[in-house]
């Protein structure tokens, strides 16, 4: 038993305790619907930032249309709930799979592009999806948006309190971030990092770069779709303006501010960029201007982000514990 392993267990328990005991207790004590909304928004954007981190930070593909896939998920969940009576249990995976399916179709032709060309292609695709959401009035109800009156139902049991909704959102966000965390700190994640560093070299070493890029894009869009479904069910009303280009930039700013390539960094960036404007709400509606300034100064002064990739990897390596210690009894696993 090393010391690091204990810290790892303590850290996990601490995070879970805050998320599932301290925070809900505090929210229930304060008892304001608005605070619930802010906290759930922060959780949903954490998931969005982490899912974008997988594509932009780890696989190195600058993605400027993430909010569109978030929107696809939200619309699938909301329309399935409002028009077809498909509840949360089925609607949530459906939203993720729908977003991933669209990502697959989109990725097939565009994944061969590199750097700025890829960024522009995703911008174009994001705008196309946004136009469809806004103008395909027969299905998406256009700029009026979709109202969703049904609450979250879990296998027949309906959750209607705010506290219950909070627990559902927190559980799903935690589980999703955990999946991405394990995915990106594995051999698979290392393969994705090799794409970012030099995809021609990775190709030459036998890594199927196009397939990996498509997979990373689909996984990321899947979780964006999940986040969209959570958003639709927590607010009960979605409109195309929630998923426009500035939202994509907001998510990207979270990733850049937190540190490209670092999963904990993405969460920190999301919390900062959601909670800071809320804290400054009294000053006026300056959320986006704060986003702009935070983005600019973090690029200028902290180009590696608040919690950059190298410290994050070292941190996570320690959390994994014994696998990286020199242990004469066991065979080594993980990175060397």
């Amino acid at each position: 038993m090393s010391k690091d392993l204990i810290t790892s267990a303590v850290l996990k328990i601490a995070i879970l305790a805050v998320l599932f005991a301290a925070l809900p207790a505090l929210l229930a004590y304060l008892g304001q619907g608005y605070l619930y909304q802010v906290v759930m928004l922060a959780l949903i954007f954490s998931l969005l930032a982490v899912s974008l981190q997988l594509v932009t930070g780890i696989a190195g593909l600058l993605h400027l249309g993430h909010a569109a896939f978030y929107g696809v998920g939200a619309y699938i969940a909301a329309l399935a709930g409002a028009d077809y009576g498909i509840g949360f249990t089925l609607g949530l995976p459906l939203a993720g799979l729908g977003a991933a399916a669209i990502a697959f179709v989109v990725a097939l032709p565009t994944m061969r592009l590199v750097s700025i060309y890829f960024a522009v292609a995703t911008l174009g695709i994001g705008q196309m999806i946004f136009l469809v959401l806004q103008n395909w009035v027969e299905v998406t109800k256009g700029p009026n948006g979709v109202m969703l009156f049904t609450g979250i139902d879990l296998f027949g049991y309906t959750v209607d309190s705010e506290l219950g909704t909070y627990f559902v959102v927190a559980t799903i966000v935690c589980a999703s971030i955990w999946v991405i965390h394990r995915l990106s700190h594995s051999y698979y994640g290392n393969a994705l990092r090799s794409l970012r560093e030099d995809d021609q070299c990775a190709d030459a070493m036998g890594i199927d770069t196009v397939r990996l890029k498509i997979e990373a894009f689909m996984i990321s869009s899947f979780f964006a779709g999940i986040a969209g479904a959570l958003w639709a069910y927590t607010t009960g009303y979605i409109s195309p303006m929630d998923f426009d280009f500035s939202e994509s930039i907001l998510i990207l700013a979270m990733v850049v501010v937190g540190g490209l390539g670092s999963i904990p960094g993405a969460v920190i960036g999301a919390l900062l960029l959601i909670l800071l404007p809320e804290a400054l709400r009294g000053v006026g509606d300056i959320r986006n201007i704060i986003v702009g300034f935070v983005l600019f100064f973090s690029i200028l002064f902290l180009p590696k982000g608040l919690f950059g990739e190298v410290p994050a990897l070292n941190f996570i390596r320690r959390q994994f514990g014994s696998a990286w210690q020199d242990n004469p009894d066991k065979q080594k696993v993980g990175w060397k």
Partner: peptide, 22 residues
């Protein structure tokens, strides 16, 4: 370097647009 200037020009565009909106 390209991505840094891409982001910084993006940040400037957000700031300029939001300032005009204010």
């Amino acid at each position: 370097m390209r991505e840094a200037t891409l982001m910084s020009s993006l940040a400037m565009s957000i700031i300029a647009r939001e300032a005009m909106e204010l």
